[in-house]
């Protein structure tokens, strides 16, 4: 056989599954306290553990940007508050996310925005936990996209609540969070009632 037939194949890109962007309401997202790495490698992906028992490396959210602030002098970054029917997401974009930073610079609140980003959990020295999102991209969208997102996120949240606990993620969530599923259902119900038929 010709020499390159075996063993000589170049490594194919994307042999891994890309991390999907999870849909999660602000009311659940702000309760995140657990973050872990899958593997010990420097490059192993980092996950936030949702209280409903799913790991999450990336999120997609749509909400109203209510406030935008420029922070820092040397290392300038933007910080924005983005509201959904259940609460507020804190979204930042700095020089490590140049695409998102430039997009953020051009958006003036109030506006409906769609954000793709990574969850970030930070504990202050006095024990406060800050849960935020480092944006990878942010675009202005219309109300219909926001409404579609609320529907989709309601469905994803109910799916997580209705999935019987199985696997290490839900076991860890059960240990670390003591969630009251009734409260979460009410949160979803409340979010849905904000939409018009």
């Amino acid at each position: 056989m010709s020499t390159p037939a075996t063993g000589g194949f170049p490594k194919r890109e994307n042999m891994f599954e890309r991390e999907p962007a999870r849909r999660v309401f602000a009311g659940e997202f702000r309760e995140i306290r657990v973050q872990f790495r899958d593997g010990t490698d420097e490059k192993s992906p980092s996950y936030a553990l949702l209280p409903t028992g799913q790991r999450c490396n990336r999120v997609f959210l749509v909400g109203s940007m209510t406030e935008k602030k420029r922070q820092g002098e040397q290392n300038m970054y933007y910080q924005a508050r983005i509201a959904d029917p259940t609460g507020t997401f804190f979204v930042s974009a700095g020089s490590y996310q140049p695409e998102a930073m430039q997009q953020m610079a051009r958006i003036e609140p109030p506006a409906f925005v769609a954000v793709v980003g990574k969850p970030s959990i930070y504990e202050t020295p006095d024990g406060m936990v800050m849960v935020s999102i480092r944006a990878e991209s942010i675009t202005i969208v219309d109300r219909e996209v926001r409404d579609c997102w609320v529907l989709e996120t309601a469905k994803a949240t109910l799916d997580r609540l209705d999935t019987p606990a199985s696997g290490p993620d839900s076991a860890l969530a059960a240990e670390k969070y003591h969630i009251d599923t009734v409260t979460y259902r009410k949160m979803v119900y409340h979010a849905l009632t904000q939409l018009k038929f």
Binding site: D147, C148, L151, A154, K155, L158, V188, Y189, F197
Partner: peptide, 16 residues
Amino acid sequence: IHFEPTLLAELLNRTG
């Protein structure tokens, strides 16, 4: 994809 009111009704029922 457009907003689907039927999906909204379905999900409201699901929340109980």
